[in-house]
Design a protein around this nucleic acid. Structure first.
Lengths: 96, 96
DNA sequence: TGAACGTATGAGCAAGCGTTCATATATTAA
DNA sequence: TTAATATATGAACGCTTGCTCATACGTTCA
C-alpha cells in the first residue's frame, strides 16, 4: 500500500495530466522545448490560457522553464512524464 | 503528435487518476479484488461515496466488476493502470 | 412473503477548475 | 525615454467535481 504523502503527490501529478489542454501542451513539448507563443499556436489556445496552464505544470514540476531574453522556453521536466503519456496512450489504443 | 481522439481519452484516464480517493481505491485494489464494503473500510470513506467513485472508474474502464450474490467485487481493469500508478510513484519519489 | 443486507443512484450543494479579459512586468529596439 | 513585444498574473464567471443524504434495487434468509 502506498504511503499517504505519496498518494497526495501521485494524485496531484495525475490531476495535472487530466485535462486535454495540458495533455496537448505536454505532447507538443515531447519533441523538445518551445516558447509560450509557439505552444499557444500549436495547441490553438490564447497565450494567456497557455501561460496559466504552464504555471500549474511548473508548480507541480511537470515542466521546467529556461528564460532567454523575453522568451520563456518550456520543456517536459523529466522522462517519467512522457512515459506516463505513452503508457496512457497504449492503454487507450488497446481499447481496454 | 498524438491524435485528437487519443488526447481526449488519455486526459480522461488521467482525470480518473487525479483524485486522492480514487488513487487510494486503485492502490487498495492492487493486491487483488475487493467488495465495495471492504474498499470503503480500507480507504475510510462512506460506502455511498465509494460506490459513486467506482462508477466513474467503471465508466472509464479503470476497474471491472464481478458480481457474486449481493456483493460486487472490483478489480483493476488492466495492468497498464497499475503501471501508471507505479510510474507516477517513482516520479514522485525521485523528487523531480 | 417480508425483513435485512450490500450496492447503486439521484438531487443538491460547496469547492475547485479552466477560461476570458484586463492589466502588470520584463526585455528589446528606436 | 518611449513603444513594442513576450510572458505573467488577478478577478470574475460558468462549468465540473466529489461529497452527503435519502432512496431504490437486487439478493439472501427466515
Amino acid at each position: 500500500m502506498m504511503r499517504p504523502a505519496h498518494v497526495e503527490s501521485v494524485a496531484e501529478t495525475f490531476r495535472m495530466l487530466g485535462a486535454q489542454t495540458r495533455v496537448r501542451i505536454l505532447d507538443g513539448l515531447g519533441e523538445g522545448e518551445l516558447c509560450v507563443g509557439d505552444i499557444a499556436k500549436a495547441v490553438g489556445m490564447s497565450e494567456s490560457a497557455v501561460s496559466h496552464q504552464l504555471r500549474l505544470l511548473r508548480t507541480f514540476r511537470l515542466v521546467r522553464v529556461r528564460r532567454e531574453g523575453r522568451q520563456a522556453y518550456y520543456a517536459v521536466d523529466d522522462h517519467h512524464i512522457l512515459e506516463l503519456l505513452n503508457q496512457a496512450r497504449t492503454h487507450v489504443e488497446e481499447g481496454s
